[in-house]
Design a binder for these strands. Structure first.
Lengths: 223, 223
DNA sequence: GATAGTTTCATACAAATGTTTGAAATGCAA
DNA sequence: TTGCATTTCAAACATTTGTATGAAACTATC
């Protein structure tokens, strides 16, 4: 049989199980049982468990980054080289939120897997995540073009906060829903995206209006 | 010897090791070696490994919540029952950021432990975290008093975003620092707090100015 | 100072886990 | 078919892990 068949059966089974039960308590034996292949197949095809996880994450990660850049390019082309800041931020957080939120999330294994990645945090993935920085620099550059007056520091913080709001919404959907007794509709993905983008834009545009942040230095002793 | 001595030696050693190396690869044998006690002591005093972790987390968590509520009360008393929204949010995110950021963080075991809790995510802790909701409701109530015009939904989102920015800053300090080549000074805790609070306040006050969020429904197909 | 309760200790247990091995099976080219 | 490389398989390996046990040491009370 084509060796690819076993390989992709493992990948699919692993992603499904990780998505459902998290990285913590899914063993290789669980995976091979789900995939109907031999236990040794994982090490034969991937080398180790960590490399299997890494391949899963890298695949989905590249998909996400590709989509982000596609939307970023579209935003900048629409503006003739300089994108609207809201559209740039939408390109940054949109794919994540669209992928991980919404009512159809239950049906997409890839989405549930990426949510797991955001909730849990296994070393094998943390290592790879650091490469994401180069990717983010492209957004910083685009933001710089959109807001040439803004200082670099403000742009960094703006991007940081935008990602923070998006990722936390993915990670803590449950808490927000419980806290608000379901009043915060996380399934209306477009509304959530608009919300995050709006706040991020405010953070960026309010900052460059010269009003330096004024730290309250009331010297509250911490303990 | 007083049994408390062994108990607290275990707690201290465990917190130190978890803070330094994460929950993933610290075993009971590591802990008892560090604490200079017998292996069986952990199960004798705590019942199980998970209960040890839980006790560590609960202790620090209660400390954090106490501090938050203390500052919340101070904020509301200063305003004669109704606190300034910025001060309320500062009471929410201040303790977290002050505890987990700053140059002295390297020296505080408790701080590094709480950072770990934010970065990794072990089931024993996730279970407990859900109780945090009742605590957050007190902040929602205070925010409601400060901004009586705002709808509940806006308040929930505002609190959610405030926590998002604070926690992500704790969690991803390294990424922000690397991305900005050190230009974003995360060690200036007061400035970071001011930044987070400022954005959160903007998110809250801009929302209740009638401008409903306008979702872009350009029906981009997701795949 | 004997007794009862608590704490410590060395050691064993039992189960789970990722990985390796060497042979069998399979696919493919000459 | 023959030969060679790839792939599959069952079984074993080697640790590592949290937990349990029962005896010994210790503490405090009468």
């Amino acid at each position: 049989m084509a060796s690819d068949q076993t390989r992709s059966a493992i990948l699919a089974a692993a992603e499904r199980l990780y998505a459902d039960r998290g990285f913590g308590d899914v063993t290789l034996r669980d995976i091979v049982a789900e995939a109907n292949v031999n236990l040794a197949a994982v090490n034969y095809h991937f080398g180790s468990k960590d490399e299997l996880i890494a391949e899963l994450f890298v695949t989905r990660s590249l998909q996400l980054n590709r989509e982000r850049l596609r939307e970023l390019r579209a935003a900048e082309e629409a503006g003739g080289g300089v994108g609207d800041i809201a559209e740039i931020l939408r390109a940054l957080v949109g794919p994540t939120l669209r992928g991980c939120l919404g009512p159809d999330t239950q049906h997409s294994t890839a989405a549930r897997f990426m949510i797991r990645v955001n909730i849990e945090s296994v070393p094998a993935i943390r290592r790879i995540r650091n490469r994401e920085i180069d990717h983010l620099r492209k957004f910083i550059a685009a933001m710089k073009r959109a807001l040439p007056e803004s200082s670099a520091v403000e742009l960094y913080w703006g991007l940081h906060f935008a990602l923070a709001m998006a990722q936390q919404t993915v990670r803590d959907t449950e808490r927000l829903t419980k806290l608000s007794d379901g009043q915060c509709d996380v399934d209306d993905v477009d509304a959530v995206i608009a919300r995050v983008v709006k706040v991020a834009v405010m953070a960026l545009t309010a900052a460059d209006s010269g009003s330096k942040v004024a730290p309250r230095v009331m010297a509250r002793e911490a303990r």
